[in-house]
Design a protein around this nucleic acid. Structure first.
Lengths: 157, 157
DNA sequence: CTTTTAAAGTCAATAATGCTGACTTAATGC
DNA sequence: GCATTAAGTCAGCATTATTGACTTTAAAAG
């Protein structure tokens, strides 16, 4: 009966709204900062993942983001031209390009993630360690299985 | 010291990635369904909130969504023209329009939220009741204070 | 060595969703 | 009567995604 209590349609709808509004808050700080650089969320995501997985291949980035090569092209082109991302020819396979943040790119990544981390830290603090565990568990289960596999693949490579 | 343990920059970055990927999964089911109707996320959001707050005013919907009147116009126009939303002249103030879902609109809302609820229910089940509590607490804290106030205002009206 | 495949990059056209500015219409409040 | 408010509209633009059709370069397969 416990299961019934926390699985009512209304509770689920509330959870859905929470996801929507929390995500909105979650992206609001970076969005504001990005405006100063005439960049958008697409640039932020590229910067984030290049930082997290230094030297990753263009194909891996496409795979993570789940977008097409043509969609990424404009964004990546800008970041490279603006000197935030360094695209180096692969050492083993020269067809590949390994992506790295330059110092300038790292600086913007810092600025963006500082704001986002600050918000997350405050939320975590207010909710407490056990809540954070629950938060993470539920989010992991909301993710697509396919996405999880993709992430695992990148982590392994 | 406990606080230090769960507030490392890496843990926070992991949480940020989790939010990104979970939100992606969260929207994937409705996105797929909406394609069959040539609608997008904007239509979904309008349908969701009109269902949750039956009879709400256009201004309230704008307030909740945080978009401009011109942005909502195209979407709402379509939903009304397609017979999913009913716009009724306010009984007290005839300048106002109260929004309701028609039977057709309610049917689409069902289809969309069934898919989303199914995913949430599975995630909640897998994580357990305490995790759900934590999930909710953290998300509430991630939200903007401004957003919370807006929601409260609608709930009161 | 030649052909096929793979990785990256590009150009063009299209779509969804947001924005701003400049309005109109209708109803309310004073 | 006149200013304000709620709703609705038109036009133009930006961002970010899409698909399709290519090219270039390098590796792999035959």
């Amino acid at each position: 009966m416990d299961a019934m209590l926390f699985l009512t349609d209304d509770q689920l709808l509330q959870g859905i709204e929470l996801m929507y509004f929390a995500y909105k808050g979650f992206t609001s700080d970076p969005d504001r900062i990005l405006q100063n650089y005439a960049y958008g969320r697409a640039h932020h995501r590229a910067i984030h993942f290049i930082n997290r997985h230094k030297g990753l291949k263009v194909n891996d980035l496409l795979d993570i983001l789940g977008i097409t090569k043509q969609s990424l092209n404009r964004v990546l082109r800008q970041l490279i031209d603006d000197g935030l991302v360094d695209s180096r020819v692969g050492s083993k396979d020269k067809r590949e390009r390994n992506l790295y943040l330059t110092d300038k790119g790292t600086a913007l990544e810092r600025e963006l993630s500082d704001a986002q981390r600050k918000r997350m830290r405050a939320a975590y603090r207010a909710a407490g360690p056990e809540a954070v565990q629950g938060f993470r568990m539920v989010l992991e289960n909301i993710m697509d299985g396919e996405t999880k596999q993709r992430l695992q693949r990148i982590k392994d490579s």
